[in-house]
Nucleic acid binder design. Sequence first.
DNA 1: TTGTGTTTTATTGCCTCC
DNA 2: GGAGGCAATAAAACACAA
Length: 314
Amino acid sequence: MAACGGGGFNSNLSVLIQSQRGPCAASQPLEAFFLSGTSPTFLGSRSVMSFADVHQANGSTRPFLRSYDHEDNGDDDLDEYFHQPEKKRRLTVDQVQFLEKSFEVENKLEPERKTQLAKDLGLQPRQVAIWFQNRRARWKTKQLEKDYEVLESSYNGLKADYDNLLKEKERLKAEVTLLTNELLLKEKEKEKGGSELSDKDAFFQEPPGKAMADSASEGEVSTVACKQEDISSDKSDMFDSESPHYADGVHSSLLEAGDSSYVFQPDQSDLSQDEEDNLSKSLLPPLVFPKLEDDDYSDPPASFEDHAIWCWSY
DNA sequence: TTGTGTTTTATTGCCTCC
DNA sequence: GGAGGCAATAAAACACAA
């Protein structure tokens, strides 16, 4: 098909022939030139020919005459219009509007509709088909841009959520460290104090397993919970329903989903083995922390898709 | 006016479907 | 195998700043 393609004047002449005799009907510019003298419709592109058709069909009304001022102001310009060398011409505003409306109805073109549109607009059916083809391509590009924007904003939202969770994690880590230190301090005081034990300290004096067993057997889990609250209430707002953390949809949804333990999971990688033992004996059993590895807090993936999957894995 | 970027029209080659 | 669709591309037409 290279013979009927290519650029420049010859190519346009070939197009001219094609419009009358089908694809690649003429390979010689001379033939086109010869044919151009046989019919007024060969003066100019297919659009020009169409304009001529419309002009003939509609008399002086010329509904689809292109609206450019310099082409619409007298016989001289009209003469020039018909006698200018072969050029690619744009469809008129009216023609484009008509095609746009048709495209809105259905962006695919059945043969009958193509023929009818071509007839209505005074264009070649092939021109109508090409216009729809190009229009579909433009629509697809626009659609891709829209899809990209939607995905981008969605990703940005998720990224913001992730950043908030990361901050929350750091805050909670610091809190756990603080509480652990407090606990160790009390243990040391208790060792020093010996017999001078307060009731509260007595709780920590007992073997953790026994304290828990006693509490559980007497239905006093709330005691443990209270202890936990005593410790945390003055240092943390993690159970405060009016806390800004709960205003965040992500946090509240996590808790509502019964996944609150995730939020309170201490990062045990920062603790010594002794500290871990202390925590597991005295605090962890009543709170039933799930065992999560530190790798569970790995950095988010770079791409939006991986990021979404990464978030869901929690 | 001119250079340059964008849009529109049209071609080409490949692919799929019937 | 022919028709039609699509992606890539060419080239004319157009818009616009300098």
